[in-house]
Simulated scan of single mutants.
Amino acid sequence: MKTFIEAIENAQKMEGMLNYIAEFDLTVNFKDKSSAHYHLSLGGETEGEGLLVSLSNTLQGFRIQKEDTKLLRERYRQEFCVSSQGFLWNCQYIRP
């Protein structure tokens, strides 16, 4: 969870239109019962950047730095559910 939070805090807002393929459907459920839905793409490259897109605004993406993407790629290439720091999140790998 710490790796994911750090990756998002370091993400950079992207300009222009997005052309991406979602790899993960990510849902974050907060303590107050609200939730947020995202697409997360980590790519197959070992040195590439990742992408996070909120489903509430699919025209805006956030670039995840190479180092953070590598850490996420190593940990989250499978279905998982993590509960920590008031979050409950589910991430399902949707690409074959």
Score class of each variant (00 low, 15 high):
1 M>Y: 10
3 T>C: 05
3 T>L: 13
4 F>W: 15
5 I>L: 09
5 I>P: 00
5 I>D: 07
9 E>M: 09
9 E>P: 04
11 A>P: 04
11 A>W: 04
11 A>H: 03
12 Q>N: 10
12 Q>S: 09
12 Q>Y: 01
13 K>G: 02
13 K>T: 08
13 K>C: 06
14 M>R: 13
16 G>R: 09
17 M>P: 08
17 M>L: 12
18 L>H: 10
18 L>C: 11
18 L>M: 09
22 A>D: 09
22 A>I: 08
23 E>D: 14
23 E>G: 05
23 E>Y: 06
23 E>C: 08
24 F>P: 11
25 D>F: 11
25 D>A: 07
26 L>W: 12
29 N>P: 01
31 K>H: 06
32 D>Q: 05
32 D>T: 14
33 K>P: 00
33 K>Y: 06
33 K>L: 14
35 S>H: 12
36 A>F: 05
38 Y>W: 05
39 H>G: 01
39 H>L: 00
40 L>C: 06
40 L>F: 10
40 L>M: 14
42 L>A: 00
43 G>M: 03
43 G>T: 14
44 G>C: 11
45 E>F: 05
45 E>L: 06
45 E>H: 02
45 E>A: 13
46 T>S: 08
47 E>C: 09
47 E>A: 13
47 E>P: 00
47 E>V: 15
48 G>A: 11
48 G>F: 09
49 E>K: 13
50 G>C: 02
50 G>I: 07
52 L>P: 04
52 L>G: 04
53 V>G: 03
54 S>L: 13
54 S>A: 14
54 S>Q: 07
55 L>W: 11
56 S>L: 13
56 S>C: 06
57 N>L: 06
57 N>G: 04
59 L>K: 14
61 G>R: 01
61 G>I: 08
62 F>P: 02
64 I>G: 02
64 I>V: 12
67 E>L: 13
67 E>M: 01
68 D>E: 07
68 D>Y: 10
69 T>W: 00
69 T>S: 01
71 L>F: 05
71 L>A: 13
72 L>I: 15
72 L>E: 01
72 L>C: 03
73 R>L: 10
73 R>T: 05
73 R>Y: 09
75 R>E: 11
76 Y>G: 07
76 Y>E: 01
76 Y>R: 02
77 R>A: 03
78 Q>K: 14
80 F>D: 07
81 C>G: 01
83 S>K: 12
85 Q>I: 14
85 Q>W: 04
86 G>W: 04
87 F>K: 00
88 L>V: 15
89 W>I: 07
89 W>P: 01
89 W>E: 09
89 W>H: 05
92 Q>A: 13
92 Q>L: 14
92 Q>G: 07
93 Y>A: 03
93 Y>G: 01
94 I>M: 01
95 R>T: 14
